[in-house]
Design a protein around this nucleic acid. Structure first.
Lengths: 212, 212
DNA sequence: AGAATAAGTGAGTAATCACTCATATGAAAT
DNA sequence: ATTTCATATGAGTGATTACTCACTTATTCT
């Protein structure tokens, strides 16, 4: 009981708890990692950015690689993969519209993290697995029933699921991750506008069909 | 004259010319870089892989970064960006089919290089510029007239060019670069099959239009 | 308040880093 | 054969790396 009081007191005074300090280190790591890459970042620089001594890092994380894994831990990505459940949609098409906007917003907010994950995925198997499971795996799990429903209802063509989703994700990722990097590539003013372009192309394609 | 003879002789005997050695270093660098990333690779390891002394690397390249730039130099990428000119196509649709297959093949051959470039692009501005100019820039330059011709002829809808190309490239890249990384994502047996899927989706979209 | 425990610190460590340079090698010219 | 010269070598350089540990500081328990 007493210990609870003390903990509360410590939180009110702006002294930091070990947990807060741990989070500071993780936050600083993500910032530096995203800027210079994992191998290009030194623990000294991370310690400085987090406002702690270098030794403190190794009290919370046994190795630098443990720190990398902590940065990528599910908690950070939870927001990325959970579709907002409050918005109930009726038609598969509405689902895709809703899903797309939701993803693009989250992608824009976490662009540097996701870009970093994609970059490091090819060098570290652990990162690759985390990326695959947490983002792609769950994303696909959410989409699949809506896709199949759309096919059953006659709204969608009966295209193979995985390749179709791969292309869809390619569109989304290339906007979310490359739009900022290669300036001029994404002239859209708002996310909504970009989402509309992507969804229009995804649903209807480029070709003019109705030549009657 | 005599020096020419001698040079020829040196080539016949398997002694290496400085140029060959330089190329060995570049080849080894690409291999190691693609495996461990730029910062994660040491010049000692590259020298070992290239079969030369570490000092030899710095006789050909003044810094490690110079070596990175040499690895990414246009020569290596020329094959990636030049559309085969021998194949003449008539319709915009044929062009896209031809272009897509050509890109997917080249992408598959050079996947590790391109993946490496995308990964390092966010850490090194020079790499970012090289990637943008050499691949995306030229690719877009080749596509644009065909895209506009297709719109004029009434084959294509009048969609905004850049966002549409961004989505197209997203589809292509996600297949070419992620297909191998995330196994099971690309069930297509051949490149042709994958190209057909992508092109079908790109041209006609997912939705069933003709409900009359 | 004082003892016990946990958390934070930064100088220190061996290993590794990119890079240098005096020396060795081998081919071309005389 | 001898000299000339470009190239290759690897031990050596100081700087930086991830990580440790004896010590200080802060918090909790009695």
């Amino acid at each position: 009981m007493k210990s609870n009081q003390e903990t509360q007191l410590r939180e009110i005074r702006s002294k930091k708890t070990p947990e807060q300090r741990r989070q500071d280190i993780i936050d600083a790591s993500l910032k530096i990692f995203a800027l210079k890459g994992y191998s290009g970042s030194s623990t000294a620089e991370i310690a400085h950015a987090a406002g702690v001594a270098e030794g403190t890092i190794f009290r919370h994380f046994t190795t630098k690689k443990d720190l990398l894994i902590a940065v990528l831990e599910p908690k950070v990505l939870d927001g990325l993969i959970q579709l907002d459940q409050e918005y109930r949609v009726d038609t598969p098409t509405d689902f895709f519209r809703r899903f797309l906007r939701n993803r693009l917003e989250l992608l824009k907010e976490n662009a540097s993290l996701v870009r970093f994950m994609f970059a490091e995925a090819q060098y570290h198997p652990e990162v690759k697995e985390a990326l695959f499971k947490e983002i792609l795996g769950q994303g696909i799990g959410i989409i699949r029933p809506w896709f199949e429903k759309g096919v059953e209802q006659g709204d969608f063509r009966d295209l193979p699921f995985l390749p179709t989703m791969r292309s869809f994700m390619g569109m989304v990722m290339f906007y979310g991750l490359m739009g900022n990097v290669f300036q001029g590539f994404s002239p859209e003013k708002t996310i909504e506008e970009a989402a509309d372009h992507i969804l229009d192309l995804f649903l209807h394609g480029l070709a003019l069909e109705d030549k009657k």
